[in-house]
């Protein structure tokens, strides 16, 4: 049994329902996640919510079993308050409120984006990075400054991961990592819309143009090469600008797209120019997961950032810079 504080974290912003348990010694004791896979195309929020409701009881008991603890050992219950899909978020929030009330333990509302960063800091050991957070639903560049994770750049339309996933699905090869795998057999690069405005990026024009080119008999492998190289270069360039501006020495890649080998390669090459260190979230924590909510909830609990039940409404548009990262001030 672990000493110190123990927090249960529940993630349910989109396609994943996850239960994680973290201890104040910095250990993740459990990380149990179930992913809803839509039969076609994107996520249907209500179907996903039904999947989450059905999976929740098993997930919870599996996580407790994995950690070898009973609910009574918990010191707090954290949940992902947003951003995400309302119906999905409400599943996690409802379970969390019920547990917190039943156990008489504090409830902790966690920002999903902040949680991706904090689990990244925990498992990679970096301290004060510029973060590239790239996933199916999110693309942003952020760094801690003056009590919050400030947004230095973001997508002006769709997320980078979404762009590549939709491209893969519409061309019939499937979502990521399929486009990147095909890209390895690509030979010829075709120019596609490269939209960087300051530190902001835009991907919808890239997706449309790439799909249009498909009809012009361009080899699919070449198109995969062109779209992935373009998207990753845009991300790396904006990240470079943020690094130069913030003068930080560390880069952290988090979110589902952090699994990309080619993106990592590019970021490494950029970091060498600036003498910066690159850290990448390991695969088991790259996608949405319960452990990241548990760990961030624990940090919040340690600095007394808890949430009264009556203020625990979910926040589908909860921006990362709306959450105060109080623990960072205390060196956590």
């Amino acid at each position: 049994m672990e000493g110190g504080l123990l927090v249960l974290g529940i993630e349910s912003t989109a396609h994943t329902i996850g239960f994680g348990i973290a201890s104040s010694s910095g250990k993740i004791l459990a990380n149990v996640n179930y992913v809803y896979r839509p039969r076609d195309g994107g996520i249907h929020p209500r179907e996903a919510a039904q999947h989450h409701s059905a999976a929740a009881p098993t997930g919870l008991s599996e996580a407790l079993k994995e950690a070898g603890i009973s609910p009574r050992d918990l010191d707090g219950v954290a949940f992902s308050a947003g951003p995400g899909m309302g119906p999905c978020l409400r599943v996690g929030a409802t379970v969390a409120r019920t547990l917190a009330l039943r156990l008489g333990k504090p409830l902790v509302a966690v920002n999903h984006g902040v949680a991706h960063i904090e689990i990244g800091r925990l498992v990679t050991g970096c301290r004060d990075p510029v973060v590239l957070y790239v996933a199916g639903g999110n693309t942003l560049i952020t760094a801690y400054m003056d009590r919050r994770y400030r947004i230095f750049g973001e997508t002006l339309d769709i997320a980078a991961g979404n762009c590549l996933d939709v491209f893969g699905v519409k061309t019939g090869i499937g979502p990521m990592p399929a486009p990147e795998e095909y890209a390895r057999r690509g030979e010829k690069f075709h120019p596609l819309p490269y939209r960087v405005k300051g530190m902001d990026v835009s991907f919808s024009g890239l997706l449309t143009a790439a799909l249009r080119m498909l009809k012009d008999d361009v080899r699919l492998e070449d198109l995969c090469l062109s779209i992935t190289e373009t998207a990753y270069s845009m991300l790396t360039e904006t990240l470079e600008r943020a690094l130069a501006f913030t003068e930080k020495r560390e880069i952290l890649l988090v979110g589902g797209l952090a699994r990309s080998r080619r993106l990592k390669e590019m970021v490494d090459a950029m970091a060498r120019l600036h003498g910066a260190e690159v850290y990448v979230i390991p695969p088991e924590y790259a996608g949405d997961n319960g452990a990241m909510i548990a760990w961030t909830g624990l940090l919040q609990l340690m600095v007394g950032q808890v949430t009264p039940i009556e203020q625990s409404r979910v926040r589908p548009r909860y921006r990362i810079d709306e959450a105060e990262a109080v623990w960072r001030e205390r060196g956590l």
């Binding site: 690069f189 120019p191 190289e229 270069s233 790396t236 470079e240 090459a269």
Partner: peptide, 11 residues
């Protein structure tokens, strides 16, 4: 920029 493909970088 050495991190971009030379064709893309030049373009």
């Amino acid at each position: 920029k050495p991190y971009r493909m030379p064709e893309l970088d030049k373009w």
